[in-house]
Nucleic acid binder design. Structure first.
Length: 489
RNA sequence: GUCCCCAUCGUCUAGAGGCCUAGGACACCACCCUUUCAAGGUGGAGACACGGGUUCGAACCCCGUUGGGGACGCCA
């Protein structure tokens, strides 16, 4: 795609001798005012994928320009969320607040060059202008430029001025967005916005432009709620004499109500999904498919995503979050996960529970029975719950339905008789146990279910479990007979 | 209100003028398998927001309408 200055950086200028292929630099720039939610996570993912695809770098910048709203907890949550998602950034994270002096310096320089000016308006004046704009047609141009060409000598006493950038008064600006295409906006809908607050600190608009430039960002991939800002930033880049990075404004993720996802709209931090037992790989795959596609492909492991990811296949319409689909993907990746690893993880979590010990026999049972459990689980948490049956040594907790089944004297009698049969045999495989149970049921004139369900209740303490002969095989002869005995009495 | 963006099954999407009586995935329904629950298999229901153009031909191009979203801070 031909662009004016594709991957240009004006500072430092690349030398002709060391002229490596212009490298892609992306950045994820969250403001640490809350947790990392699903929308931010996807923005980070897209930036990460794009950088990895082009063998460029993915940088992280914490936009803590704001005063009191930024918190250490939020910063920690962002780092944790990214790390959980496996989105590693290159180099050290940049804290925007550290660059405040540089930001102010650039603003001063712009004043010297006549591209920016001090504005001494009071908050009251601004409010008035806002009302004026609304009453006279509702224009988005609020500030009327009253200090734009006014002699600074007329500055009133006792008013700390802000610095505003001079925006073009007429004409129009076109942004060639990598996702949205060409977007044009009339310049007279943009006013001279503030770049330096009256306390001398930079505003977001100034800080982003300077930091993006200083960090050598070639592609700014962010939510399309920033599309309007791009026009302002474009002119700031121009005023500074810097190349404008490529913009890619990706659609937002909406909540169930169709509105922008935010803390108020039921958005949850990624750590919530971690706690739910979602796998990072599944989350990446899910987030990727929200707004991006590669034909009909659905299961796209991260390596494949890196190979395929391009900005031109990002859609332009907003998407909604669908937990069912995430869960489905998670179930898929759960089955793909190395069983040994999974078993170790579950044992570690179980052993972590106060007052719980996991016997070597229990570990062995889990390893043997995990496959049957995994097939039935959508999350790691479900898997942990269902693992109880193998991890606990008798006696087990019994749920209500199982208790009801075992409450029937006839069922207990059946179990007693079956236990007797089982006590006689020495070999203990799933197929043989199956056959024995069938023969037993037939000899008693019972349906297999009339034998299997009480057996399940006795052996698992539940009315739901993997195939009961599989369970018996995994449990082994002794444990099976022990559990049966407990249930019968 | 003004500016900007968007518009295919309930949801995520394929589709870049004829390959579309619109494909896939999740969810849903039915059946098969079956000792429960899943998994798996088979089948089903389900969408081009509306109206005008352009064209031999439009889900795809243009205009308008409607609907949705975003932005209009000394927040980011």
């Amino acid at each position: 795609m031909p662009r004016a200055r594709p991957y240009g950086r004006s500072n430092p200028p690349p030398t002709a001798a060391s002229n490596p292929p212009m490298s892609v630099v992306t950045r994820f720039a969250p403001s640490p005012t809350g947790f990392l939610h699903i929308g931010g996570a996807r923005t980070a993912l897209f930036n990460w994928l794009f950088a990895r695809h082009h063998e460029g770098s993915f940088t992280l910048r914490i936009e803590d320009t704001d005063r009191k709203r930024s918190t250490d907890e939020a910063i920690a949550a962002i780092f944790h969320g990214l790390s959980w998602l496996g989105l590693d950034h290159d180099g050290n994270a940049v804290f925007q607040s550290n660059n405040a002096a540089r930001h102010a310096e650039v603003a001063e320089q712009l004043i010297v060059e006549g591209k920016a000016y001090r504005c001494y308006c009071t908050p009251e004046e601004l409010t008035e202008m806002r009302e004026n704009a609304r009453n006279s047609g509702g224009s988005t141009r609020i500030y009327d430029g009253r200090w734009r060409d006014r002699d600074p000598a007329e500055a009133p006493d006792g008013i700390a001025p802000v610095v505003r950038i001079k925006m073009p008064l007429d004409g129009e600006t076109t942004i060639s967005d990598l996702v949205q295409g060409d977007v044009t906006r009339a310049n007279d809908t943009l006013d001279d916005f503030i770049i330096l607050r009256s306390d001398g600190t930079p505003t977001y608009m100034l800080a982003v432009v300077i930091d993006d430039h200083d960090m050598g960002v070639t592609h700014a991939i962010r939510g399309d709620d920033h599309l309007n800002n791009a026009f302002r930033q474009y002119h700031l880049f121009e005023a500074c004499g810097w190349d404008v990075p490529h913009f890619a404004h990706i659609p937002l993720i909406h909540g169930a109500d169709g509105a922008k996802l935010s803390k108020r709209h039921g958005a949850l931090g990624v750590e919530h999904y971690e706690e739910l037992g979602i796998l990072p790989e599944a989350m990446r795959n899910y987030l990727l498919r929200l707004g991006w596609s590669h034909g009909d492909d659905e299961i796209i492991p991260t390596e494949q995503a890196i190979a395929w990811f391009e900005l031109d296949s990002v859609g332009r319409s907003p998407a909604r979050f669908d937990m069912d689909k995430l869960l489905n993907l998670n179930a898929h990746y759960l089955k793909e996960t190395d069983p040994e690893e999974l078993a170790a993880q579950i044992v570690a979590i179980a052993a972590d529970t106060p007052g719980t010990t996991v016997s070597p026999a229990a570990k062995a049972r889990l390893s043997a029975g995990l496959g049957g459990l995994t097939k039935r689980a959508k999350t790691i948490n479900e898997l942990i719950d269902s693992s109880e049956l193998y991890l606990r040594d008798a006696p087990l907790a019994v749920n209500d339905k199982a208790a009801a089944i075992l409450g029937d004297p006839e069922a207990r009698q059946t179990l007693g008789a079956l236990a007797e049969e089982l006590g006689k045999i020495t070999s203990w495989t799933e197929a043989e146990l199956d056959q024995i149970a069938r023969n037993f049921a037939e000899s008693k004139g019972l349906k297999l279910g009339q034998v299997a369900q009480p057996l399940r209740a006795a052996l698992t303490g539940s009315n739901v479990s993997p195939g009961i002969f599989e369970v018996m095989a995994v449990l082994g002869r002794d444990e099976t007979l022990t559990r049966l005995e407990i249930a019968v009495n």
